[in-house]
Nucleic acid binder design. Structure first.
Lengths: 338, 338
DNA sequence: CGGCACCTTGAAATCGATTACATCCGATTC
DNA sequence: GAATCGGATGTAATCGATTTCAAGGTGCCG
């Protein structure tokens, strides 16, 4: 009862060999019906559960995928985790999650120790040598790094930033501010590029302030914005959290949003539509992203050793879309406003 | 290079036995210095990484803890996950995370398959028979269930709800509304009890509306509140999300918060202090909770087989505290207001 | 009736580490 | 100088499953 039951115990009780028990459990149609029933009965009677470590060792696979993210407490990830887990669980895989900033050596081990047989990487700023050194199927999700030898999944951040700029321009804003993300973050850089390019092509004045995706960075940017001589009337923040911080600080300082300044975010986190004012933003389909990553990594895990990385066809792109809410409006003195 | 390196390869290269390699790596002071150096060199040269499955099998432990939570996409958990991971990683443990609603059989396996040697359970509504059937060290965190034979960590929800009621009463509110959580949730029930008991002891009128912790439930409760004949002026929601939904909907309907109604939440999620108005709430120290759980489970894992569950001393309680912000104020026509 | 194919089953090798036990050797003790 | 001790190392068993290979049995065909 309380002692661990091994396959041998089941075999003894059922009066067969361990090989037969193993077969009865993993490929039931290869054993005779009578034997199968005996085995199943013995399994039930003993409460036998397979020892995964033994199976993993023998089969050289772990039926597990590893998710690496730069900051587990970032709420942006949680829905992605849930989606990956859901998809993985459906095909019998377990999920491990680790912070990707746990130190080089520990990280290296994770990809090598045989406990995971696929990796979903949400961090584009790890050492490429480290990442490429893992001989496991790997997909990049959301963030990416061109030096990683692995397929990339996620939205087109440059184009998505363009959507934001277009929206503000269409409302009549002629001068825009972008609050960017961390300098070393590929998402931040790409969104900024998209912002600058599109703003230029639409002939808009444009400023960029530094930030780091956080509420506090948004608030700080708002303070700096308030001190500008000619305050841009349209603000595009590189993340929703940042936008919420920006709006929040604006209101504290006595500005009306969107009356005096329109503010947009990026991501469409859960609170975006509940904040006051509700937040106009770019929706990232996180659930879909998670699912896609899980499916992709599963495919790769089934592929032969040789075709692990680049060789699969590119995934279908995941589309971001503009969600118009009430944090944006026509500028106060817009030339084209009625 | 590309083929997996085994301990045997290292042994051959170093000119020693596998036993010596194993010892050199796991208890370096039991081998001679010269041998140790030779081994370390061979390890470096080959890029050897231990195969965790083999080690786990032989040692009958996995150096891994499993976190089970009812809904991975709930942002309340993410900081807890991060804290557990941080603490676990520091002592060389990996972390697995799974949804606790993945189905009985799959769940049963997780606790039995030898891949985890400790469980942090954030779900109080699993079948106790299932939970108690696992022969692994286990701690309950945040949510709990008296039928689980395992230590419980978290704040005192009843007392914390009392803090909320006291705060509203101290401001002068004489009639309170509580928006509760799911009927089958122990946190919801305990907070409701704390609300009712304290409200009674302070002689306040009290109403409870159903809810389920979500933004939408808060919004729905706000609509119902608005239709009440005598609207309570103080509202205590069982979660921050719910409170934000409540406030948001109130504002949409044209009510002033906190001018016409004071609203409190519970948890102190990240947005609480950035929402407009910023949210008065009960702070749950999630990081501390995660750390405490990780430390406790680590202790239990080191204990002998027999002392797995109840026998350890109770953990030091984790204190919740009131955080006063701007979503609460004196009631509009409070008898004691100036 | 002999031969062949196929299905079911068991014995034993295997996955890659750890570790109990034995051995060897030099140093210490009497 | 013999006995003893202890440290370093190797041999082989072990963890608990899967899987190869061989064997036994059954049925079909010529």
């Amino acid at each position: 009862m309380s002692a661990r039951v091994r396959i041998k115990d089941v075999a003894t009780l059922a009066g067969v060999s361990t090989a037969t028990v193993s077969r009865a459990l993993s490929s039931p149609d290869t054993v005779g019906p009578a034997t199968r029933d005996k085995v199943m009965e013995a399994v039930k009677a003993t409460g036998y559960r397979i020892n995964a470590a033994a199976r993993d060792l023998r089969q050289r696979r772990a039926r597990s995928i590893l998710i690496l993210a730069p900051n587990l407490s970032n709420t942006f990830f949680s829905r992605i985790f849930a989606a990956i887990q859901e998809e993985a669980s459906a095909v019998g895989l377990t999920v491990q999650i680790s912070d990707s900033r746990i130190g080089r050596d520990r990280l290296l081990s994770l990809g090598y120790d045989g406990r995971a047989d696929g990796i979903v990487l949400l961090d584009g700023s790890l050492d490429p040598e480290l990442v490429n050194g893992w001989h496991l199927p790997l997909v990049q999700l959301s963030e990416w790094n061109d030096a990683y030898d692995a397929p990339r999944l996620g939205i087109d951040n440059r184009a998505a930033a363009g959507l934001a700029v277009d929206h503000l321009a269409d409302l009549g804003h002629r001068a825009l501010l972008h609050v960017s993300g961390p300098e070393d973050n590929v998402l931040a850089l790409t969104r900024r590029e998209g912002f600058l390019d599109t703003a230029e092509s639409r002939d808009l004045a444009r400023i960029v302030l530094p930030g780091d995706f956080t509420l506090e960075a948004g608030a700080e940017a708002a303070r700096r914005w308030s001190r500008l001589r000619d305050r841009p009337t349209g603000v595009f923040c590189a993340s929703d959290e940042c936008a919420l911080g920006f709006i929040s600080e604006c209101v504290h300082m006595g500005f009306d949003v969107p009356g005096e300044v329109s503010v947009m975010g990026f991501d469409d986190i859960d609170f975006a539509d509940r904040f006051l004012p509700s937040l106009t933003t770019i929706h990232q389909p996180r659930k879909e992203m998670g699912r896609a990553a899980a499916r992709r990594i599963t495919q790769m895990m089934q592929g032969s050793e040789g075709t692990l990385r680049r060789s699969l066809p590119p995934a279908t792109p995941i589309a971001a879309r503009l969600v118009k809410r009430s944090s944006t409006a026509a500028p106060p003195a817009a030339p084209s406003a009625g």
